[in-house]
Nucleic acid binder design. Structure first.
Lengths: 153, 153
DNA sequence: GCTGAAAATTACCTGGA
DNA sequence: TCCAGGTAATTTTCAGC
């Protein structure tokens, strides 16, 4: 696909807010019939603009109400140590996000746990099992002001 | 709902990976018929365990390939200034996440922009328009190691 | 690339164990 | 709470413009 027009963008904006909207309803909103909407959605999926459809769950209700950002640095920066670190990060389910970052630390992790005792346990047994972590610094989320999964387009 | 059983958790695990799975397919995987699956999903939605269904888009392809975390502190910590700050954060579309955090800074923002020139523009015209920011520190995402929207259950 | 309508599949509902 | 079957709605396809 060479270029996305306004209709494509409208479809993407709608779907990243509510993926359960029907083609019929979306067609109505955009003043078209179902066929062009359906074909555009399929094309957007095929071309990779839409990666997947997922359900957003309630962290609190599912006992994962504590979010912690943890900045870590590696002891050494060889290829092997970095590769091993990444593998171990991926294997830990509590770590939901991991970024290679600029600045004082090498990586920033986002961790989801039930509460403080569980985080303590995660630091001891989860992070503690990862070799080659030089320093680590935890930042606790006190409150969530804004959390949009939609990207601004 | 008093308690979620293993079937409920399996449903939630499946839906937060792929919300386009049919009740029929899910019923097949969990060795049940469509009715109980359908009713459990509806109950999980009604009780708020499932908050919404959304599409995940490709940041790179949609020209929002640069992620920046920006830590900010307020000049003063009065109720009015905090309230005003939150309103201004919510109004800026580039800011996709905002957390009230522990430690040196008051808030951490996650910002999505096209590239460095666009981030520079955002800092000048977006963040720059917000009153009462005392200090700010930008951390740039060099690479994404892991990014799961699914919560570990 | 769109319209309109038909075909296939799924969502949703009802009765019964 | 689950199973079996039926109806309503949606998804998907296709001819025609």
């Amino acid at each position: 696909m060479q270029h996305l027009d306004e209709i494509d963008l409208d479809i993407l904006r709608a779907l990243q807010e509510n993926a359960h909207i029907t083609t019929k309803e979306l067609a109505h909103q955009l003043h078209l019939t179902t066929t062009p909407i359906y074909e555009r959605v399929k094309r957007l999926e095929r071309e990779g603009y839409i990666k997947k459809y997922i359900a957003i769950l309630d962290n609190q209700k599912l006992k994962r109400g504590l979010t912690v950002f943890c900045n870590v640095s590696l002891k050494q920066h060889t290829k092997d140590i970095g590769k091993k670190f990444v593998e171990e990060i991926i294997a830990l389910p509590e770590i939901v996000e991991c970024y290679n970052i600029s600045g004082e630390y090498d990586f920033m992790l986002k961790i989801l746990v039930e509460d403080m005792p569980h985080y303590q346990n995660f630091v001891m047994n989860g992070l503690g099992s990862i070799k080659n972590i030089g320093s680590a610094h935890s930042i606790f989320v006190i409150g969530e002001i804004k959390h949009s999964t939609a990207i601004p387009i």
